[in-house]
Design a binder for these strands. Sequence first.
DNA 1: GATCGTTGGATTGTTTGACAATCGTTCCGC
DNA 2: GCGGAACGATTGTCAAACAATCCAACGATC
Lengths: 239, 239
Amino acid sequence: MVSNERVGRSLLRQEVSERIKRYILDNRLRPGSPLPTENELCAALGASRSSVREAIKTLDALDIVEVRHGHGTYVGGLSLSALVEGLTFRGLLSPNDDFAVLSELVDVRELFERGNAAAIISALDGPHLDTLDDLASSMGTAVDADRVVADRRFHALLVNPLGNELVSQLTDAFWDVFTAVAPRLGLTPSDQDPVRLHKAIVHAARAGDSLAFADAVVAHYAPIRTRVAAARHAQSIRN
Amino acid sequence: MVSNERVGRSLLRQEVSERIKRYILDNRLRPGSPLPTENELCAALGASRSSVREAIKTLDALDIVEVRHGHGTYVGGLSLSALVEGLTFRGLLSPNDDFAVLSELVDVRELFERGNAAAIISALDGPHLDTLDDLASSMGTAVDADRVVADRRFHALLVNPLGNELVSQLTDAFWDVFTAVAPRLGLTPSDQDPVRLHKAIVHAARAGDSLAFADAVVAHYAPIRTRVAAARHAQSIRN
DNA sequence: GATCGTTGGATTGTTTGACAATCGTTCCGC
DNA sequence: GCGGAACGATTGTCAAACAATCCAACGATC
């Protein structure tokens, strides 16, 4: 017990967590860079291994730190995995209305594509459009899991040319949350023709028509909206 | 050591974490509901207190669980605090480009308001508009912290009438991240006239002109964009 | 009777020490 | 040269004890 001035409102493991974060920042470490071992951190920060470990677990949950059993602790990928896990759980719990989160998710996902229509169109080039077309086509031929993968890639590639990594990661995250929550709430995938709905988006982009692009995006999410609303309504009657 | 069939890739504390989440879901607990004590969880899940505590710390970081010292453990608020902390840290670390995250944040914040222009306008009523006007005015008279508070409330109230809690919380979260990161990167607040820029948004909303609304939103973020770009450029020259 | 301080129990926070599980590497036998 | 075995380092788990905190019940005082 060296510096015992930790009075009042401060929990030790939170102090440790802050100091580990500061260590990463001060040393300009990068994702993947190794961190001191637990014992070294204990000695450096003057805390027991339990406290250090609990602090590390907190940072691990935020993907600020990544722990490999038997190997060491490293700077994490700084992904949005915490958002995905948190939102997924909220979607499964959902006070009052089980489908509110799903409905709101669709709104945001649509907004990301519709609201960036002009920028997306001007950033998409020929090869990119061809890839999108291929993905749309594959949603007709592929089966089950592959179809889902194609859908995910399609929407990821749609916003990627924006060059905004945050938008790209949020798009992925919201897609992950939706596909994780929907089936566990008994929501079956839309039976509308996915090929046509996705190709319409590509077609509008190729034509450089941002209004048509926005309309196509809205049309793409319309059947999903309908399905969520139907399940929502069925639930409200059931109760 | 009772059920020792935890072979292979599964870590005990992760199993514990999953079972706590399932416990909350199965019992349909709500934010604020009490959870079993640590010792009860140890007995119920057949794990030591260390493992249970580390699992709880993981859930605590995601705001799935909330721990009160000396009192107990409860279901958390399911907020986006993990997103805020994670993005803030990423913004402070920022491999390669310190201002990339900041720049992307502005894009997303603008998108939330610009892309929902029509829906926001049709959802805003008279009293709501008056409140927004008052907030805009107070940015001229208020000082320091109060001015910042008014700005936050303004943008929160702007998207609130959408009725989409996810959008509202993301707006708050991104605002929090920006204001946490910007000063620590040496970015001083814009010296443009905030009253005029915010009032223009309200004025367009009152007129029911969604195009003017979108333009006003863009104009509002323009000086911030400029400032971020300038800092970004200054950094690229420095290196 | 009301109010305030005290006491006690319950619960989480922290420490310490030990051993298990995992991962790389190094070394050895072949 | 190559494959397996042993080893060291590191994280994972367990156990027991004590500290810090919160709350409520109790009691003293006014």
